[in-house]
Amino acid sequence: MSNIKIRDVNLSDAARLAEIYSYYVKNTAISFEYDAPDEKEFSQRISSIQKNFPYICIEENGRITGYAYASKFHPRAAYSHCAELSIYIEKNSKKKGFGKLLYEELQNRLEKLGILNLYACIGVPEVPDEYLDFNSQHFHEHLGFKTVGLFHKCGRKFNRWYNMIWMEKLIGVHE
């Protein structure tokens, strides 16, 4: 039986998180980055995000198998009730429910911070290929997100053009 734990990310986790993310950068069009950040860059990203938002990970039997975080949706003050979410699960740990657990915890923490709108920026193919499918979109739909925008051929990776969608979930009362 697995022992599952969700906790805040520490800077000492940067190497492991960079390792998980590196797979997506090098082998998929899920991330539109071309070069995987190293441990130092990842530490800087973690430190920057944690100043204002939660950055959490999930452990299975003491080993980090995924992480999720929220970040500023837009720098202007009127958007302060919004957050953009990101999530990455180790490739061999998918379909275990870890993504749902991470997002539920992230949403609970964001509600306490007064966040009302959640957004996700997701790469999608016109036709699924070996680098990108619709799994991320379907995952977000399953958690109550709705597609609110489609950008055509805006990301180029592996000599192919990919679309990008914005998905939204309202989690609070807009008074």
Rank of each mutant, 00 (worst) to 15 (best):
S2L: 14
S2I: 14
I4M: 12
I6F: 11
R7M: 12
R7G: 10
N10S: 15
A14N: 02
A14Y: 05
A15H: 13
A15V: 11
A18I: 04
E19W: 06
Y23H: 12
Y24E: 12
K26T: 05
A29V: 01
S31N: 00
E33D: 15
D35R: 03
A36E: 04
P37C: 11
P37R: 10
D38A: 01
D38F: 00
E39R: 03
E41D: 14
S47M: 04
Q50C: 15
K51H: 13
E59Q: 04
G62Q: 06
I64T: 04
G66W: 02
Y67Q: 07
Y67S: 05
A68S: 12
A68L: 05
Y69D: 06
A70P: 03
A70E: 02
H74T: 10
P75W: 09
Y79I: 12
A83S: 02
A83W: 05
E84C: 13
L85F: 13
Y88E: 00
K91Q: 11
K91M: 09
N92A: 05
K94E: 03
F98T: 03
G99N: 06
K100C: 08
Y103Q: 00
E104K: 15
Q107C: 12
Q107P: 10
N108F: 15
L110D: 06
K112E: 01
L113K: 13
L113E: 08
G114S: 11
G114H: 09
I115L: 07
L116R: 08
L116A: 09
N117Q: 14
L118G: 05
A120H: 00
A120M: 02
V124G: 00
V124M: 01
V127I: 11
P128I: 08
E130W: 11
F134Q: 02
N135G: 11
H138P: 15
H140G: 01
H140D: 01
H142M: 11
F145I: 07
K146L: 08
T147R: 00
R160I: 01
W161P: 03
W161V: 11
W161A: 05
Y162G: 01
M167P: 07
M167I: 06
E168L: 09
K169L: 10
L170H: 14
G172S: 08
V173C: 15
